[in-house]
Nucleic acid binder design. Structure first.
Lengths: 181, 181
DNA sequence: CCAGTGTGAGACAAAATTGTCTCACCTGGG
DNA sequence: CCCAGGTGAGACAATTTTGTCTCACACTGG
């Protein structure tokens, strides 16, 4: 059992039950609590490792989405599609306020925020996106909608296969019907 | 110190730090832990009471927003405006997965979901809202954006005074720039 | 004044979780 | 075969949080 498998199992479990104990995490990964402690010094270390994994997956998704390329709207659609596999983990981290309280928060988030905000800003400067919503808020909304859709999918309130459409189309187009051009 | 004041203090604290202990909650309300226990049998009872408060505030906001009246888009704007004072509490409850796991979840959420979804459905049937996003997803997105904006406001990433505009305009219009009519 | 009520402070035990340790096992490479 | 390393199971203490209790004190209405 390698460390990566343990992390994935923990992410899957904690997405559903964020208060799971170390014992439950170990059982979910199919290992004993002792071995779990050999991989991660404690619960805090585990959460930090999940945070690093989440950041890495987001950055990889961002790389694959090629945010500098083509129409900004299409880049957002690509980003949402690429980020879907990490949505559950992201939703867990988003709700883990522990990560945002301390003074030492991972620089990765700031780097991610910057890259995503830059994409929205590019869309605004190109006249594609409206300018009355700040890039920071659009970035926040992307996280929020992603987490919402991940949770709603878990409960079966929305279909998982519609994830990319749901998130991207709402974020880009909103609820209002658009006049035919 | 009445029960309502205790609940409001607890909501304000738990919004910022969802893992606060009963002792911290008591201190935040300016009472002792003993008195806190006299009001609420335990932490679970406190969270349930906050849940009931959140549901009540949402229903009151929905009533004030008059969702059956006028254009659906304007009704959504009114709803977002009325819901803002409860956004912090809502964000806390939204992240409290404990409430969604058990078999006995408060019927109030279902009732709320129904009323909000009905508003979106009305907008769809009136040709105002697009029909490729389900009312259930739009409802979920309303919750998600509300919680996101509440958290982002706490951290100062977005301005609290822009809350109604941020949430409502993104939800209704999306990020794309609209052609002038 | 006095009884009743509510409160704060703190002690205390119970429960849950965590962190650490030991020991037996087993498995693969030399 | 033999051994070194990793693993599972479980014991154990430490810590944290919770729930309960007692007791003294302040306040209030009669």
């Amino acid at each position: 059992m390698d460390r990566d498998h343990v992390l994935r199992s923990a992410a899957a479990l904690l997405t559903r039950k964020s208060t799971a104990t170390m014992d439950e995490v170990a059982k979910a990964a199919g290992i004993s609590r002792a071995t779990l402690h050999r991989h991660f010094a404690g619960r805090d270390a585990l959460v930090r490792a999940l945070e690093a994994l989440g950041i890495a997956e987001c950055e990889a998704a961002l790389d694959r989405a090629r945010p500098e390329e083509g129409a900004a709207a299409d880049a957002v659609r690509r980003l949402v599609r690429e980020i879907q596999p990490a949505a559950g983990l992201l939703a867990f981290l988003y709700g883990e306020s522990q990560l945002w309280e301390g003074d030492r928060q991972n620089d990765g988030w700031q780097r991610l925020d910057g890259r995503i905000a830059a994409l929205f800003q590019r869309g605004q400067q190109g006249g594609e996106f409206r300018i009355d919503l700040t890039p920071a808020w659009l970035t926040e909304a992307l996280y929020g909608l992603t987490a919402s859709c991940a949770w709603a999918s878990l409960d079966g309130r929305v279909a998982a296969r519609d994830f990319p459409t749901m998130v991207a189309e709402l974020l880009l187009g909103g609820a209002l019907r658009r006049e035919e051009p």
